[in-house]
Design a binder for these strands. Structure first.
Lengths: 124, 124, 124, 124
DNA sequence: GTGGTCTAGACCACT
DNA sequence: GTGGTCTAGACCACG
């Protein structure tokens, strides 16, 4: 992997987000074991404590659960995963809406713009 | 200001993007003078050449024009600015669509999600 | 080669012009690889950055395209090359017209003069 | 003035060309006195001998004549000036034709291109 | 002062 | 090896 971090956001949150996306997109299946804290830390060249904090955060959100001595696993509760998906989507949507508003777009124009982009991507 | 740069994207491109947003949102009005290359460079703690390259890029896109010995100014052609707005919006939309697709959203669900987020933001 | 540069024009622009002519005249075929930035720089005795800027300019005009780690290549889109030809020709024509006007030639006389020169060159 | 010299051409020839243009365009009238060799040399930052050689060349071509102790003057023979005009024009035309041929233009296309450029310059 | 250009030298990501 | 980017520092032409 070798991730690049955005200096504006806490690294642990970016690590959590990364796993959130892996889980939502199915690249990490329900019940699957996440890489160990130590492995992840070495791969990303960050302090293990930082990774640990990310895992704690994911556990707290019920997206993962940890078994002492065994590791951290993706939740098997599909509703939690669905909830996460919606939450991630909502975050992205909010950021987009803010951005478009700054550019002077009305709400209807945003919807139109999205539909147009969808059509364009299908064509190409 | 004191900007934070995303290490994944060229700095000069991020500087141009910053001014693009300022111009599209009207914070920099048509005909208004941009800060000088040297001022911007010092403020952002980057080399003047890097800023110069950003200005060159904006000039080339017809969003600004430079007068030797006087400075760099926002274009007075509103059509060029409108075109830029659309282009920036399309870029954001494409990024969003990619992200949502990875999460497993269908196209209709994306439109629904946008509408829901718009409503929520209005309510709060 | 060992080019001589006109001090009135930016070196990078003259390098681009040189390649433009090579491409339009077919000495560099569509799809053919241009000499590397470093080679060109050494041959012309200029800084690699200056050559790089020329290549950037040509890329931006869609006359060449660059592949990271492989090199810079002539476009395979013949329409772009045709457009370049017309553009170069128009530039030369404009310069000529200005010059002839200063000498007091009327427009009809210019056309006559061109025809006469064409005939003379064919005869000799 | 402060001229910039093309390193590919003899400086004295460029100086002569400069005066040729001045004379053909009427900026230097028939019978008018040219600046002294010494003045021209200082103004152009070249050796007086170089200027002298240019004046000699113009005298030889009957475009100017020199009176010992008085200076160099534009010829009053309008036919000589007309001949010079034609000669300068022919030189430019030949250079243009060579260039256009390299680009792959046919002779008819050259004439068309000239006519089109003339029309465009009138419109703008 | 302004932007425009050039040199020198460095590091990166990609094949 | 390739092009892409960045820094440092310089000189120029213009107003």
């Amino acid at each position: 992997m070798s991730m690049q971090f955005d200096p504006n956001k806490a690294i642990y949150a970016q690590i959590a987000d990364y796993y959130y996306q892996q889980i939502c997109s199915g690249e990490l299946a329900p019940g699957e074991k996440l890489p160990s804290v130590r492995d992840t830390a070495q791969r990303l060249q960050v302090n293990p404590n930082t990774v640990s904090r990310a895992y704690l955060e994911m556990d707290r959100e019920k997206i993962t659960f940890s078994k002492r001595g065994q590791g951290t696993f993706v939740t098997m509760d599909m509703e939690d995963i669905q909830g996460l998906k919606k939450s991630l989507a909502a975050d992205q949507m909010q950021a987009l809406i803010k951005y478009m508003k700054r550019l002077g777009f009305s709400e209807d124009e945003m919807v139109d713009s999205l539909k147009r982009s969808l059509k364009e991507m299908k064509d190409s």
